[in-house]
Design a protein around this nucleic acid. Structure first.
Lengths: 151, 151
DNA sequence: ACCAAATCGGACTGCATTGGTCCGGTTAAC
DNA sequence: GTTAACCGGACCAATGCAGTCCGATTTGGT
C-alpha cells in the first residue's frame, strides 16, 4: 500500500517531542525512557529509533550518566524525506533503481516497464518539501484532531 | 523503504504491453497467457493483476472463448496513482488516515505526531502527475536503458 | 575509586503482509 | 457440445518488519 514503516512514524513523534523541550538546541537532553513515557511508545522501540536517528546525524547523543539525546538541527530544517531515509533507508519505490550493482532478475522486461526513477524523483521531491515543523500541527492539544477530513 | 508492491510494478508492465498492440482501443484483445509470455511474468500472477485492473475499470475484460483484455482508456490518461490504487488499495502512508472507522490504538499520541495527511496529499499529487505513457520511455527497444541517468 | 545511569551495537523471535499458485465455476465463440 | 478464456475464491510459503533483550562501554556523581 505504499506505506512507511511504523518506526518512521515513531521517529516523527519522538523528534517533535524532542523539540518541545529543546527549542534552544542546548537547554538539556532527554533520555529515551523519558521520551518513551511522554510519547507512549515502548522504551526499546524508542531507543531503536533514536539510535538510527543519531546515526544519521539528526540527533546528538550523549553517553554516560546524565546522558540522553537532543536535536542537532531545528525542526524547520528537517524534512520528512530525511527522517524516512534515516529509518527506512534510501527512498526508492522499486529495487531496480538504487542497488544498481546486481540487476533485477527480470531485467529483460525491466527495460520495457521503464522509468520508475521518474516516480522516485517525484516522491523524493515531494517529501523533501515537507518539514517536521509542518507536521506538528500548531498547538491543538490532542484527541480533537483524530479525523479532520483530508481535503 | 517506502516501496510499491511488485504487483503494481507488474501492472505497469502489463498495461504498457497491452497498449502496444492496442493503441486504437478496439483492435483486438490480448489474453493473459499471451501477456504472460510477452512480459515474462508468470501467468497466474498476470491473471491476478489483470483481475484487479479490470475491477478498477482500467481494462475491459471479455469473457468466453476468444476473450481477453484490452485497455479502457489510452495510456496518456492513466496516472501511476490509479494503477497503484487499483493494485495496492488507496494511497496512504499510515493507517491512521484512511480506515477512519477504527482509530489507531495509540491515538492519544496520534494527535501529537500530527498531520501525515499532508504527506499523503503530496505523494498522491506527485503520483497523479505521472502518466503511464511517460513511464514507457520512447521507442528504445530494450536492454539498453537499464540505467540511464534520470534527467 | 567505585557505582549508577545511560547509550551503543548487536542478535533474536513472533507476526503480518505479500507474492505466487491452484481449482471449480461460468461465459461465450466455434 | 466442446473448447478457450475469464471469474472469484481459498490457499501456502517466504520475506520483511515490529518489538525485545542482553552485554559492553561511557561518564557523572558520591
Amino acid at each position: 500500500m505504499l506505506r512507511v514503516s511504523k518506526l518512521a512514524d515513531y521517529a516523527v513523534v519522538v523528534l517533535v517531542k524532542l523539540a518541545a523541550d529543546n527549542d534552544c538546541v542546548d537547554c538539556g537532553v532527554q533520555t529515551s525512557p523519558s521520551l518513551a513515557a511522554s510519547t507512549g511508545v515502548p522504551e526499546p522501540t524508542v531507543a531503536k529509533v533514536l539510535k538510527a536517528l543519531s546515526m544519521s546525524g539528526l540527533v546528538l547523543s550523549q553517553r554516560g550518566a546524565r546522558g540522553g539525546y537532543r536535536l542537532q538541527r531545528p525542526l524547520e530544517t528537517i524534512s520528512i524525506a530525511e527522517v524516512i531515509a534515516a529509518i527506512d533507508g534510501p527512498i526508492a519505490l522499486t529495487a531496480c533503481v538504487d542497488g544498481a550493482s546486481s540487476g533485477c532478475e527480470v531485467q529483460r522486461m525491466c527495460a520495457v516497464h521503464g522509468r520508475w526513477d521518474l516516480v522516485n524523483d517525484a516522491i523524493r521531491d515531494a517529501l523533501n518539501r515537507i518539514t517536521l515543523s509542518e507536521m506538528r500541527a500548531a498547538g491543538i492539544p490532542a484527541f480533537l484532531r483524530t479525523l479532520t477530513p483530508a481535503e
